[in-house]
């Protein structure tokens, strides 16, 4: 994980303009007035009490909005009915899970009672495999190119980073606009003799589009981390290799890739964690369609719990717990890799 940087590398503090200090006047006043009751509190509880006071708001919000939901999720998944509040729900044991796993053939989603869930699982699986592998490949190539001696490197780095900042809704709309019947893609293919086609109504293409668009939207982030990793590789290693007349391909396989491996692993796991939860862009781009060809797990949970009538909070909770288990495994993997890297750094 991150190490604090020496002061010279920190981003410069924002300049204190006059209007800023004017703007901060009332804030300072409020914070100054808050000192009187807090001084009293400090007298009563001592410095240790103040530590608790500083920690409390953050931990309280965590407890209410993250930890408590985790517990309640378990309760939801073992109760049934369409009621939202827990006291109106009846205990059903493992019925929700049984319903999910009720299949005659596990390789065929259509043979399951909850065929939508298994379709979503299958789609998510293929999405994760394709999106992560292609995106890491593209990010790695981009990072390698940006690591060359380049005029205006920070500009080019920014170019690839731009879509990362766009909201998923905007990303979805941009690409829906390009892929529609009178869109940019059709008008570029038209002179080549292709008739206009509604791309997003084609099951295969819609899936490919979802993968491509999400690579477009997120690759800049991973490129950035990989580039930071590449720049941390000592230059003298390359100089020595060059002096020995090593071929560039050999330099890549023997120096760059092994030394980048820790970063690469972290990036892969991060990308896996994000890909499993894919939702926003896809929801706007295809809405899960055509049919169920781009229905993914998060959308299944959202639709089961909030859209379909009657709402089935129990089933949605059970599905989200199953997804959570996958994510926990992935996160532990990431922490394990990070720890191993840290230990290596110490040696």
């Amino acid at each position: 994980m991150a190490q604090p940087k020496p002061p010279s590398e920190r981003p410069a503090a924002p300049q204190r303009h006059d209007w800023l200090s004017v703007l901060l006047q009332p804030v300072h006043l409020v914070m100054g007035l808050a000192d009187y009751p807090l001084r009293y509190l400090q007298k009563k509880t001592g410095i240790g009490g103040m530590a608790a006071f500083f920690l409390a708001p953050n931990m309280l919000i965590f407890a209410i909005f993250v930890l408590l939901p985790l517990v309640i999720n378990l309760i939801y998944s073992v109760t049934g009915g369409s009621a939202l509040f827990l006291d109106e729900r009846s205990f059903v044991g493992a019925d929700q899970y049984r319903q999910i796993f009720d299949c005659t053939n596990y390789l065929d989603p259509m043979s399951c009672q909850e065929d939508a869930f298994w379709t979503a699982v299958g789609n998510t699986f293929w999405f994760v495999v394709l999106q992560v592998s292609l995106m890491i490949l593209v990010s790695l190539i981009t990072a390698l190119i940006l690591n060359r001696e380049l005029i205006g490197r920070s500009f080019w780095r920014a170019v690839f980073f731009f879509p990362v900042l766009l909201s998923p809704v905007v990303v979805g709309l941009i690409w829906r606009w390009i892929l529609q019947r009178q869109g940019l893609l059709n008008s570029m293919l038209y002179p080549l003799g292709f008739e206009p086609y509604t791309w997003l109504s084609d099951r295969t293409f819609a899936f490919a589009a979802v993968v491509g668009v999400s690579i477009w939207a997120h690759m800049g982030f991973y490129t950035l981390i990989l580039l930071a990793g590449l720049q941390a590789i000592p230059k003298d290693l390359y100089e020595a290799a060059e002096m020995d007349g090593t071929k560039p391909a050999r330099i890549f396989w023997r120096i760059t890739l092994p030394l980048l491996m820790p970063n690469l692993l972290v990036v892969i796991v991060l990308a896996l964690i994000k890909a499993v939860q894919v939702f926003d862009e896809v929801f706007v781009l295809t809405g899960g369609g055509p049919g169920t060809s781009t229905l993914f797990l998060t959308q299944y949970i959202y639709e089961t719990g909030f859209v379909s009538l009657p709402r089935n909070a129990g089933l949605a909770a059970a599905a989200s717990i199953l997804m959570g288990l996958v994510l926990v495994v992935l996160t532990l993997l990431q922490l394990g890799i990070a720890r191993k890297n840290e230990n290596k750094g110490k040696r």
Binding site: V66, I72, N73
Partner: peptide, 26 residues
């Protein structure tokens, strides 16, 4: 406390959608 905070990195919104909604409503 630090561990709890880091652990919450593991809990994305999509996993706690339903219970979070019920807490917000209640």
């Amino acid at each position: 406390a630090m561990l709890v905070i880091l652990a919450t990195l593991m809990v994305p919104l999509s996993v706690i959608l339903v219970p979070l909604y019920s807490i917000i409503s209640s």
